[in-house]
Write a protein that binds this DNA or RNA. Sequence first.
DNA 1: AGGCATTACGCTGGACGTAAAAATT
DNA 2: AATTTTTACGTCCAGCGTAATGCCT
Lengths: 259, 259
Amino acid sequence: MIDLNELSQLVAFADLGTLSRVAEEFHISTPSITRSMQHLEEAFGVPLFLRGKNKIELNETGKMAVAAARTLLREAETTVRQVQEFDARQHTIIIKSCAPAPLWELQKDVNTQQPEMMVSSAICQNREVLSAWQDGSCDMAILPFPIEGAQPFLKENLFVCVPPDHELAKYEALTFADINGFNFLLRTELGFWDTLCREKMPASKFLVQPDAMVFEELVNASSLPCFTTDYVRLRDYPNRVNIPLSDEESHVTFYLAKR
Amino acid sequence: MIDLNELSQLVAFADLGTLSRVAEEFHISTPSITRSMQHLEEAFGVPLFLRGKNKIELNETGKMAVAAARTLLREAETTVRQVQEFDARQHTIIIKSCAPAPLWELQKDVNTQQPEMMVSSAICQNREVLSAWQDGSCDMAILPFPIEGAQPFLKENLFVCVPPDHELAKYEALTFADINGFNFLLRTELGFWDTLCREKMPASKFLVQPDAMVFEELVNASSLPCFTTDYVRLRDYPNRVNIPLSDEESHVTFYLAKR
DNA sequence: AGGCATTACGCTGGACGTAAAAATT
DNA sequence: AATTTTTACGTCCAGCGTAATGCCT
């Protein structure tokens, strides 16, 4: 049976030109390489080299063998990687969520109930969550509407978050119509919330900040309104007030589908 | 680096079910197989088996690895075979000829001038010779007409061969028209000659005999006419006479194309 | 003189097999 | 009792490196 290690030495010889350099490359002695190449010729059953007294080079068959070896080695690597990836997949739960809050909850649940499993999660748009669920490329899906086999998972309500002296601060409750036109601070990775806001508030501009620390600083330093929900109250900003939104769409029930 | 031998033991385990049987199959001890499988798991970097106290079976990753191993092993075999075939091709001159006589001559030439080369030859129809030459699947081509880069190789003339008491024996020379309608003994593997005869003698029937010994017996035993040429005179039949054909088409110049 | 491939040769680590253990049927 | 997997252990040789050879530039 052919030895992949020797094959890769053959490829190295094609690239480096001399057995000596291959020996360096592989951190072994030159006699060892010589033997490997001889052994390889035996394994193939055909000569691969033209040998001079102190010179060795690939013959035509040898050159062809190098090309064949390259692809076989690539295939061998691919095989190993595929097996490793399959194994990783066996021990990973892939979650696609339309929003951050239910994902945090779900990750907690999974970590306690199946501590041996890795969790790979992503927040994305509803349609991406749905298609990932449908084509089997995720194990759990969180969506803001029920689908076949999904259970209600948690409810989340949206609040506007402004400094106490902001003109919106005087209201007991607000609607999207009331706040449409105001410019908002927004975080990235909000999934479905992001889309909802842009839809309901077409006249507003959104200042999007990917970095959580920077976002917090901005919230504290500026008087721009932002959003919060009853699931992130823990992170309430001390010098801001939260005003509930009364629209239907700001009260969301998330549904969880599991395989 | 992954060991193909161990990989094939893994495949054997999938097929045979126990390590003991794999050991038999490979004519080695069971501890050796145990070690191979352990080593394979290290090489992949992931577990492949579910182990009981005296039981071992493939886990899901293991089953997947077996499938991947099967294809990789097939690819490895293919690689070796391709290299061997390439080498064989390097030492083989493939000849396509439209007729036997020039092929005999050419084989003699090649055998003396390039004694290290194998010769692989076939007699076939003109169009097959031509297409093989054009698509590069032969190294030398013999055709009864000149083509780009071909040289005249030899001339051959056709004779009718009949017993002395045959009604055709009285002629000094014959034409295809004269012999059209007579039934002839014919050998197989005549290539272009075969086609020519059938074309020029549509009223004749041909008794085709693939076996050279049997053909000779038939010639001696029957009074059916047959063909010969000035290139097979050595094999003249003692109790037959050869009458030349005078048609243009019975005097053929073969052209040889070499790469 | 320095670089290269190959042969000669001694050594060692790894791979093998035997024996045995432990469990299951 | 027979079968199966795995560990323990002793043996041995395949493969390694060093040294040396022969050759070329």
